[in-house]
Computed example of a mutant assay.
Amino acid sequence: MSGKGQEEPEQRGSFWRDNSLTLAFGTAFLLVLLGQSLAGHAEFNDQLTDEGLQPIGWGDYLMSSDFAVDVTENWQSEFLQFFLFVFGTVWLVQRGSPESKELHKVGTESDREQRTGDHAREDSPRWAAAKDWRQRVYSRSLGLVMGGVFLLSWTAQSITGVAAYDEQQLRQLQQPIGWGEYLASPDFWNRSLQNWQSELLAVAAMVILSVYLRQRGSPESKPVGSAHTATGVEG
């Protein structure tokens, strides 16, 4: 989530340096996912023990609906956050924030500004130069993919959620429910909404705090000496 800045000539370095942001966060994701699986496995076995049932192995827990619903409910909220932010920042602005586009650029902008159609350059993506459905799709591809992953992960959450819910119901000798009934249940909406509110709060906080606070060298921040009213300026 960052504002627009001027493009500079690309300076290629090593593979590790040029992809360090993706590699660092990808590695951190895998380590945290591993940690979650270990902690979740221990907690799940504690619940089974308290109910007088036999604990399960770590591999079995990884294949369980309990682990799957915990993972997917977090994924769907993250992709919802970015889907809303990508589309929302087309029309919505915040004076002074590097997370916002410049105030006079509200909307989808002109072909010249977006370098599409006749204004595409030699190094522009091929579909940016097209003048048919390919350009329309490609010009919205980031938001569409984010929205698509959100819907897929939310659907996965609902499927794994009802399986985990019914498993708990059976352990307590209660009647399981169907998928449609689960979609209207407090459990499903509590899992969804508690994640959505935290993601929306984080975005709102980042947008407004970046108006007045700085982080030297970060593209998520304005240059340290920029005025508070400077909008869409990267550090």
Rank of each mutant, 00 (worst) to 15 (best):
E102G: 03
E51G: 03
G35R: 08
F44P: 03
L53W: 04
T108F: 12
L38T: 05
D60T: 12
D46R: 10
H104V: 01
D70V: 07
Y61N: 13
G107E: 01
F79N: 05
E73F: 10
L33D: 04
T72G: 13
D50Y: 02
A68S: 13
L33S: 10
I56D: 05
A42H: 05
G96M: 00
E43G: 05
A68Y: 08
W75I: 14
S97W: 00
G96N: 00
R95H: 02
E78R: 09
D70N: 09
L38P: 03
L92A: 02
F87E: 04
F25G: 06
Q54T: 13
G26R: 11
F83Y: 13
E102C: 00
Q81D: 04
L80W: 15
L33Q: 10
F85N: 03
S100G: 02
T72K: 09
W91G: 04
V69Y: 15
G57M: 08
L80Q: 15
Q76D: 05
A24L: 09
L84M: 11
G96W: 01
D66I: 14
A39I: 13
A24Q: 06
A24E: 02
W58N: 06
G26L: 08
G96F: 01
A68L: 11
S97D: 01
F83R: 01
V106Q: 08
V93H: 11
L62F: 14
P98H: 02
F44T: 00
A39Q: 12
A39T: 11
E51Y: 04
S65I: 08
V86C: 10
H104R: 07
R95K: 14
L103V: 01
A39E: 14
D60M: 08
S77K: 09
G59K: 09
L38H: 07
L48H: 00
L80T: 15
F83L: 07
G96A: 00
S97L: 01
Q76C: 12
K105N: 01
S64M: 06
T108P: 00
N74H: 09
W75C: 09
F79E: 07
D70Y: 09
T49H: 03
N74D: 11
G57V: 06
F67N: 13
L33F: 15
L92N: 02
E102V: 02
N74S: 10
L53T: 02
T72R: 08
S100Y: 01
V69W: 15
Q94G: 01
L62M: 12
F82H: 14
Y61A: 13
P55R: 08
H41K: 06
A68P: 10
L84V: 10
Y61W: 12
Q94M: 02
D66M: 13
